[in-house]
Design a protein around this nucleic acid. Structure first.
Length: 762
DNA sequence: CCCGTCGTTATTTTT
DNA sequence: TAACGACGGG
């Protein structure tokens, strides 16, 4: 007898759900119902296979995905609430709070973001300017993504700069002094702790019997290592590992994501089974055909073909426009007309490669009164006032936090400038900064400031009850006397408490909420007044933001654990929900969004704009990058449910210059028969007819060529060189050839007429 | 301490 | 072009 949730699945989905035994790779195409498969699998394992939910771990990359997965799994099977369904990073934080001593971090650590890392590095290596510091911070993050330590042999692959290892080392030493971690540590440290501690490794293996990873194509080397370690892949009786992903949607290489993780999964985890989910429930077949015509040009892929469950649909349209102003106008017009016909603004999404491209649309939409929302630009957590408040909270949690200390000590002014700060930090030498400050000698002015700071600190600290078990639990942590299923105990206790509370009736005895504390923080520290003054001057909304932060803290208990949960939640999810999302009221607006940000989203009508070389793809001649850009294009296309448009301009203002643009190389990969072309096709797109130049006529885009050294290929780009000297006479006809073997090479046919031969049309 | 001006720089960014 | 950060004068 099959449960209902199984009967609604297609054959492949069902196969994936009931699969067992070896590890499993689910190759899930866009819109193929992968979340449904994972959640159903969780429910199935619990209810049909009697798997203890506490032994199931499912990791995602975004908080949003984790929340959705958790919710949907619980709808199918109530006991799913006991599974760990969380992001990679939040699992790392969870692990480090369990074993802080082994990782060499404070049990009350907070997570430093990129800005904090830069500030810290500048203190660790004072000779670095801000610009250099940010450069190295990027490299340090990347090194951690690749699981490389300051003394790793392969560190040069990240940055061959001979100073890099020592800079990285200096940063690490300073970070250790604070007891805090950065994002990379949340993955790297758990891996290292398990690697070096067989006992902990064993405990973990006792605990997790099923591990699932979503969006596996976005995992980096460190995450791969962690997964392998976590699953006990190399040991007896490994956990059942099931990863879900789409190699065609791997678009985060620049952040350390490794497509090879998914390409090689079957090799890395011996005996893996592969299941493809190729039925697409989102887009029409026309859109999927379009997507396939693009992505099939990639070499580095496992390969799959999506089939629409929704039928043919309308053909996508390719629109050539003279300039970017025409592009914004065209989009506005298209949207307005559809709304006049009864459609809604929220059906539409404008996609672009770079954030800067949103500007033109914003101006035009403002002008035309088209409501819009720019996704992913302003970040709540990055705002000055929010970081100030969070720094206070972090510092109360962990008084070794140098960065937080520096941020708040002199704001508002307390007569403790950078010089005094350095002195205090030196005296603290990685210990409690507040104690050091209290005991050392300071100038009169600084002493008065320090004392008033400390009294505020003490007053606020008093609002957070210290759990009595903290000493005891620290001791037990040091011995790693953690029972494998202590979460199970905790969860059950929690449940008991909750039921008692709800039994105690509504509102009479309400447990103190952390918002009370956060409110005290912004009031007692002077932050609210400080930023109220700023608002006065700059017409900003900083106080409002602070209040929003207070509101968001209402979900947490007013104790040490609640405080740390709150900080974790904030730092591990930079996209605080707006009031709009919280109230569930979605406004009717057009979405403006980068293609990267659209992953996982869908829209009835999509316009992919700026389809020009140098914009998208950014480097048409760089073969490796091209595959990634192509995947990005594929992601964009597969967001569309019903209608899809591409726009391409001949002229675009770029960095203050007006540039002649050529149509994106990707447009030529689209099947011409299957697409409506509107507007004036630029010469370059049709024939590259170079004004009577015989060379140009012969070597045009699309032509098959043979080269003595490189073999067969196709001309993907042909234009007069637009380099240096504007003298027309000096311009050469340059062609880019994509060879069947994979590489793209540039030629000047005039000089290579004998080695680059155009194959005659059949 | 704030504000203006000059110079620099210009992908993508789940956590 | 435009936006942001660094720096110096009031």
């Amino acid at each position: 007898m099959e449960p209902d949730y199984l009967s609604v699945l297609n054959d492949q989905q069902k196969e994936a759900v009931v699969h067992e035994g070896s590890s499993l790779l689910i190759l899930a195409g866009a819109g193929s119902g992968k979340t449904r498969v994972i959640t159903t699998k969780i429910a199935y394992l619990i209810s049909q296979k009697n798997i203890n939910p506490f032994s199931i771990l499912a990791v995602t990359f975004t908080k949003k995905a984790a929340a959705e997965m958790k919710e949907r799994a619980q709808l199918l099977e109530e006991r799913s609430r006991y599974c760990q369904i969380r992001t990679f990073h939040s699992w790392g934080a969870y692990f480090l709070r369990k074993y802080p001593v082994f990782a060499g971090v404070s049990p009350d650590f907070t997570v430093y973001d990129d800005d904090d890392m830069v500030t810290l590095l500048m203190k660790a290596v004072p000779s670095l300017k801000k610009k250099d510091a940010s450069h190295y911070v990027k490299k340090i993050s990347l090194a951690k993504d690749y699981c490389l330590l300051p003394d790793s042999e392969d560190l040069f692959t990240v940055d061959s700069d001979s100073r890099f290892p020592e800079i990285y080392k200096a940063y690490e030493d300073r970070l250790k002094q604070t007891g805090n971690v950065d994002f990379g540590d949340l993955i790297l440290l758990p891996y290292l702790v398990m690697k070096d501690n067989p006992k902990i490794r064993h405990e973990i293996h006792q605990r997790y019997k099923v591990i699932m990873v979503d969006e596996y194509q976005d995992s980096n080397v460190a995450q791969f290592n962690l997964l392998k370690m976590l699953s006990g892949a190399e040991e007896d009786n490994p956990a059942y590992v099931c990863v879900v992903g789409d190699d065609d949607q791997s678009i985060y290489k620049f952040r350390g994501a490794e497509v090879r993780n998914i390409l090689n999964f079957q090799k890395d985890f011996k005996g893996t089974d592969l299941i493809r989910l190729e039925t697409n429930y989102r887009s029409t077949q026309e859109i999927l055909d379009c997507a396939d015509s693009i992505v099939r040009n990639n070499h580095e892929r496992i390969g799959k073909t999506l089939v629409s469950h929704r039928g043919k649909g309308v053909q996508p349209a390719l629109v050539f426009l003279p300039g970017q102003d025409d592009e914004t106008e065209f989009c506005s017009e298209l949207i307005s007309q559809s709304v006049e016909k009864g459609g809604s603004y929220s059906d539409w999404a404008i996609l672009y490669r770079t954030n800067a491209q949103s500007l033109g649309f914003e101006t035009e939409f403002l002008h035309r009164k088209i409501p819009y929302e720019v996704v992913g630009s302003l970040k709540f957590y990055e705002r000055e006032e929010i970081k100030d408040a969070l720094s206070w909270i972090s510092f109360i949690a962990n008084p070794r936090d140098e960065i937080a200390f520096r941020r708040i000590i002199n704001k508002p002014v307390r007569g403790i400038g950078p010089g005094t700060q350095d002195k205090i930090l030196a005296a603290a030498a990685g210990n409690n900064i507040l104690l050091a400050m209290d005991q050392m000698s300071l100038t009169k002015k600084a002493r008065a400031g320090a004392d008033s700071f400390k009294s505020v600190f003490d007053e606020l600290s008093a609002l957070i009850p210290q759990p009595e078990e903290s000493l005891e639990s620290n001791a037990s942590l040091a011995q790693s006397a953690l029972s494998v299923f202590d979460d199970e105990k905790e969860a059950l206790e929690e449940e008991k408490k909750e039921s008692e509370v709800s039994a105690a009736d509504d509102g009479t005895i309400e447990a103190a909420r952390l918002s009370v504390f956060v409110e005290a923080v912004i009031k007692k520290t002077g932050l609210e007044d400080f930023h109220a003054a700023q608002d006065e001057i700059g017409g900003t909304q900083k106080v409002l933001n602070l209040h929003e932060l207070v509101n968001s803290a209402v979900l947490y208990e007013c104790n040490r654990k609640g405080l740390l949960d709150f900080l974790d939640h904030i730092s591990l999810d930079r996209t605080l929900e707006t009031q709009e999302e919280l109230s569930g009221q979605k406004e009717d607006r057009v979405t403006l969004i980068t293609i990267h940000n659209t992953k996982g989203l869908e829209f009835p009508k999509v316009i992919i704009t700026g389809m020009e070389n140098e914009i998208f793809p950014r480097m048409p001649d760089n073969t490796e990058e091209l595959e990634e850009e192509r995947r990005l294009f594929y992601v964009g296309i597969t967001r569309a449910k019903n209608e899809l448009y591409f726009t391409s301009c001949s002229v675009r203002r770029l960095y203050g210059r007006t540039n002649a643009m050529s149509p994106s190389v990707f447009l030529k990969e689209l099947d011409g028969e299957k697409i409506r072309v509107l507007g004036t096709k630029p010469q370059a797109f049709i024939s590259n007819d170079g004004a009577g130049d015989p060379v140009a006529k012969k070597y045009c885009v699309g032509a098959q060529v043979y080269h003595d050294d490189w073999g067969y290929g196709q001309i993907v780009r042909a234009a007069y060189s637009d380099t240096e000297g504007d003298e027309e006479d000096n311009r050469e006809w340059v062609v880019s050839v994509s060879f069947d073997t994979g590489g793209i090479k540039k030629f000047i046919p005039k000089y290579q007429a004998s080695s680059l031969i155009v194959c005659s049309d059949e």
